[in-house]
Deep mutational scan, measured.
Amino acid sequence: KNAAKIVNEALNQGITLFVSDNKLKYKTNRDSIPSELLEEWKQHKQELIDFLTQLES
């Protein structure tokens, strides 16, 4: 999976991924984040940080 797909899947579940101080963060109104999503974010962390940083610049 690529970073764009992961970010879109998160958005579809009401979760916004973003970068703050070079760290991957998220915002959501959900009570909890599915563990498989958290695991996927960890596996692709640097790719996600790079992707989101490019989007914001």
Rank of each mutant, 00 (worst) to 15 (best):
S20Y: 12
L11R: 12
D31H: 11
S35W: 12
Q54Y: 10
N22D: 08
N29V: 09
T16W: 14
I49S: 02
S35D: 12
N12L: 15
S20T: 11
W41E: 00
L48I: 15
Q43S: 10
K1E: 08
S35A: 14
E40R: 09
L17S: 00
S20R: 09
N8A: 15
K42D: 12
S32Q: 09
L55Q: 12
L38I: 13
A4L: 09
N22Y: 07
I33N: 01
F51K: 01
L11I: 08
Q46I: 07
F51A: 02
L52G: 00
D31Y: 05
N12W: 08
H44L: 05
L52Q: 00
F51L: 05
K5G: 07
L37M: 14
I33D: 02
S20L: 12
Q46G: 06
L37H: 03
F18K: 03
S32W: 10
T16E: 12
L55P: 09
I49L: 07
H44T: 03
Y26F: 11
V7S: 02
D50T: 11
F51Q: 02
R30L: 10
K1H: 10
K42N: 13
Y26R: 01
N29L: 12
D50W: 13
E40Q: 13
N22E: 06
E36T: 10
K42S: 13
L37V: 05
S35H: 13
N22V: 03
I15M: 03
Y26S: 02
N12R: 14
S32D: 09
S20D: 13
S20C: 15
S57E: 12
A4Y: 10
L38G: 03
N29T: 13
N2C: 14
Q43T: 13
K27I: 09
D31S: 11
N22F: 07
N29S: 13
K45E: 15
E47V: 08
Q46L: 08
S32E: 11
N22T: 06
E47M: 14
I6T: 03
N22P: 01
S57N: 13
H44F: 13
K5Y: 12
I6P: 00
T16A: 06
A4G: 07
S20H: 14
E40S: 09
E36D: 10
I49Q: 03
Q46A: 10
F18N: 02
E9I: 06
N29Y: 12
Y26W: 15
K1C: 13
Q46P: 05
S35M: 14
Y26L: 03
Q54I: 08
L38R: 06
V7H: 04
L24K: 00
N12A: 15
N8Q: 15
T53V: 11
V7G: 01
K25E: 08
L24G: 00
N12D: 11
K27E: 06
I6M: 10
K23M: 14
F18S: 05
A3P: 11
T53E: 07
D50F: 11
Q43L: 14
D50K: 09
S32Y: 13
Q43M: 14
E40A: 09
H44E: 02
K42I: 14
